[in-house]
Computed example of a mutant assay.
Amino acid sequence: MADGNQVNGGLKSALEFGPVLAFFVAYLWLKDRTFTIGGTDYEGFVLVTAGFIPVLLLSMAALWKLTGHLSRMQVVTAVLVVVFGGLTVWLNDDRFFKMKPTLIYLLFGAALAIGLMRGESWLQSVMEGVMPLRREGWMILTKRVMWVFFGLAVLNEIIWRTMSTEVWVTFKTFGLTAAVFGFFMTQAGLFRTYAIEDQDPAE
């Protein structure tokens, strides 16, 4: 299999983010339509969710074939998409799919919390190659990411329960990604302070 470092960056990003953007576009296209299948009426959101599941699985299969690797986060996300997306379609109830991000962020936050209680940074195990930090830096960053995950879980609950489906879809597509990106942008000071240098100036 191909080495992940040799995969074209644009192709990799398209496979990772393409399904979510496709979900957003398809929802905008079908949101006001109702489809009758087998005598049951399905809103556009439910039909788009049904289509999103195989698209996501196919994109992840392509990523695995190209890189020979899928992160634990990707695998957990895929499982929850299948479970909650399947429940949404089977029960014809969009609430299950809207709850999915809540559960994802709660699980990730809880996993980081368990690692911290064991004196370990499980975030380091999945991101060390991207950001080489000293152990103290990883522990601080892990605590902060843990609270971000819990905060996003709460935020998702507030938005899908109090706002329209269109607002929630926009939030899920762009808001969650922007929030995570914005958080890491604010951690520049931590990265500078705890970065592992090629050579220790004190030596």
Rank of each mutant, 00 (worst) to 15 (best):
A111R: 07
A111H: 14
L112S: 02
L112P: 04
L112Y: 13
A113E: 11
I114A: 09
I114K: 02
I114R: 05
I114C: 02
I114P: 03
G115K: 06
L116H: 13
M117N: 15
M117W: 13
R118K: 15
G119A: 03
E120Q: 14
E120C: 01
S121P: 10
S121F: 03
W122N: 01
W122A: 02
L123K: 04
L123D: 06
L123S: 07
L123T: 01
L123V: 06
Q124L: 02
Q124C: 02
Q124E: 15
S125D: 11
S125Y: 09
S125G: 00
S125M: 03
V126K: 05
V126F: 13
V126Y: 12
V126I: 15
M127S: 11
E128C: 03
E128W: 08
G129N: 11
G129I: 04
V130N: 12
M131V: 14
M131R: 08
M131Q: 12
M131K: 12
M131D: 06
P132G: 10
P132T: 10
P132E: 11
P132R: 06
L133I: 08
R134D: 11
R134L: 10
R134G: 07
R134Q: 15
R135A: 10
R135P: 01
R135D: 13
R135K: 14
E136S: 03
E136D: 15
E136K: 02
G137Y: 08
G137I: 09
W138D: 04
W138Y: 15
M139A: 06
M139Q: 14
M139H: 09
M139G: 03
I140N: 10
I140V: 13
I140Y: 04
L141K: 12
L141H: 11
T142Y: 10
T142W: 11
T142A: 07
K143G: 13
R144H: 08
R144P: 00
R144N: 07
R144L: 09
R144K: 14
R144V: 05
V145G: 03
V145Q: 03
V145N: 09
V145S: 10
M146I: 00
M146W: 00
M146V: 00
M146N: 02
M146D: 03
W147S: 08
W147A: 09
W147F: 13
W147N: 04
V148C: 10
V148H: 08
V148T: 07
V148W: 05
F149P: 00
F149G: 00
F149R: 01
F149S: 10
F149I: 00
F150P: 02
